[in-house]
Simulated scan of single mutants.
Amino acid sequence: MSIDYAARFEGLSSDTLFELEYGGLSPDIAGSDLDAPQKHVEQLLVVLAQWRAELVGGSRADAEDYRRCLDAVREAWLQHSFRWVGGPDLPYPFDLPQAVTA
């Protein structure tokens, strides 16, 4: 049975990382876990490393899903890294809409 790696990345966004950091609390309330987003992303990078090894080894053929999940991690971490209360209003995602890239 094949591991559904892509399922581990469902719903990943800077919002989910922000939620991990503050646990549903307001950012100005004590009790946040500032390391939680980084720990989560590190776990996902381990998953991506295993998935990549299987793709390179030829035991999997879901490279498009891998790329989509890798891009989701990049985007979520980029957005989270530059997000703070009172910070700049950033577009999500940074990718251009399909109509502009076509």
Rank of each mutant, 00 (worst) to 15 (best):
S26R: 14
V56R: 08
Q79C: 05
E21H: 11
D65G: 04
E64L: 08
G11H: 01
E21N: 12
E19I: 04
Y22F: 08
W77H: 05
A30G: 13
L34F: 14
P27M: 06
F18Y: 13
R52D: 03
L12R: 02
P93H: 03
A53V: 10
R67Y: 03
L34M: 15
Q50R: 11
V46R: 09
L48F: 00
E42F: 10
D65T: 09
A49N: 13
D15I: 08
V100A: 12
V85R: 10
V47L: 11
D95L: 11
L70F: 04
L90P: 02
G58L: 08
R60Y: 00
R83D: 09
I3P: 03
A102E: 12
V85G: 08
L45T: 05
R52P: 04
D4L: 06
S32D: 07
G24N: 01
I3E: 12
A36M: 04
W84N: 07
G87D: 03
L70R: 07
G11W: 01
T101I: 12
R68Q: 13
R83C: 14
D71N: 13
D89G: 09
Q98H: 13
L34D: 12
V56P: 08
V46F: 06
L48R: 01
A99H: 14
A61D: 15
S59W: 07
G24M: 03
I3H: 15
C69V: 02
Q38A: 10
L96C: 00
S26F: 12
D89V: 10
S81T: 10
A76T: 00
L78K: 09
R67M: 09
A63L: 15
E42L: 10
P27K: 07
L78A: 08
S14L: 05
V73K: 00
G87I: 05
A61K: 13
M1L: 14
L34P: 12
P88S: 12
F9W: 05
S32I: 07
R83K: 12
M1Y: 13
G87C: 02
R8Y: 04
S26G: 10
I29G: 02
I3G: 03
A63K: 14
A72P: 00
E19W: 06
D15H: 11
S2P: 15
S81Q: 09
E19N: 10
A99V: 15
Q43A: 13
E42T: 06
G11M: 03
R68A: 14
L20Q: 07
Q98Y: 15
D33H: 10
S2E: 11
W51F: 03
Y66I: 06
W77S: 02
A6D: 03
L78I: 10
A76V: 01
P88Y: 08
Q50M: 09
P27L: 07
D35S: 15
Q98K: 12
V47R: 09
G23V: 11
L96A: 06
F82G: 12
P97D: 02
Q98G: 11
R83S: 14
D95P: 09
L90H: 11
A53E: 13
E21G: 05
A7T: 06
G24F: 05
S13Y: 07
